[in-house]
């Protein structure tokens, strides 16, 4: 599903240059649930952003679902993001003046799907994250866990190939974190490929594979015995 080879990324920090990713080789098969771990500054978020086409690599090859991702202009990137990817952010990034259902239907709007169908799909996905009754509530009326579930519903609504989650539990307490991970595990069980960036070992243990980054290189890549989040809820 995902294949990257020799990925490099540097950031200009004034006069000096910060080499964040120093040649990453990384493959993900369809249906995997991968945790990308590492301390802050290890490059894990940068990797995810490049995978999500929110950022571009300086060097290296990136193939997503048999499509080589290169020479992206913003229009093309937007199209790919819409077609291939769903995003879940640490800070939820819901649009605060839109209610839950409207937030969920937004990626469908950019797919050019009719209003009626959007509404229907949005309610369907809200139902799947257990928030159907909250469809007409604004983000400000939802708890952190609920917001993240709305964000997951939104990421899923466009039926992406890959779900990218950047510290999805970073702003949540332990109990809510496990609820969110439970949801992510369930979505993965249905066959969706999911990448989760986290620095919390217990969250990483709930994935099927853990990739550890340190100083811009992969230092460890192992399959783990998945801990089911539902056991903790």
């Amino acid at each position: 599903m995902i294949s990257i080879k020799n990925l490099h990324k540097s950031y200009q920090m004034g006069a000096s240059s910060l080499h964040v990713l120093k040649g990453i080789d990384f493959h993900v098969e369809e249906g995997e649930l991968v945790a990308i771990m590492g301390s802050s500054g290890s490059g894990k978020s940068t990797l995810l952003n490049i995978l999500g086409m929110l950022d571009t690599a300086d060097e290296g090859q990136y193939i997503l679902d048999n499509v080589e991702i290169k020479d992206l202009d913003e229009t093309k990137a937007a199209k790919y993001r819409n077609k291939f990817l769903g995003f879940v952010f640490q800070s939820f990034n819901l649009i605060n003046y839109k209610n839950a259902a409207e937030n969920v239907s937004l990626p469908l709007y950019y797919q050019g799907i009719s209003r009626k169908e959007r509404q229907q799909v949005a309610l369907e996905y809200l139902d799947r994250v257990g928030l159907k009754e909250w469809a007409t509530h604004l983000p400000s009326e939802l708890s952190g866990g609920q917001k993240q579930r709305v964000a997951i519903a939104r990421a899923m609504a466009s039926r992406p190939k890959v779900l990218l989650a950047d510290e999805p539990t970073g702003a949540l307490d332990t109990k809510t974190s496990y609820e969110v991970m439970d949801l992510i595990q369930k979505i993965n069980e249905e066959g969706k490929t999911i990448l989760v960036v986290t620095h919390e070992p217990d969250i990483a243990q709930m994935c099927k594979r853990v990739v550890t980054l340190k100083d811009g290189v992969i230092v460890e890549d192992k399959k783990v015995k998945q801990v089911m989040a539902s056991a903790h809820v």
């Binding site: 819409n82 990034n93 950019y110 466009s158």
Partner: peptide, 12 residues
């Protein structure tokens, strides 16, 4: 930014 992440093109 959110809209773009969700697939809005610069033109839109």
């Amino acid at each position: 930014g959110v809209r773009k992440a969700l697939g809005a093109s610069p033109k839109s």
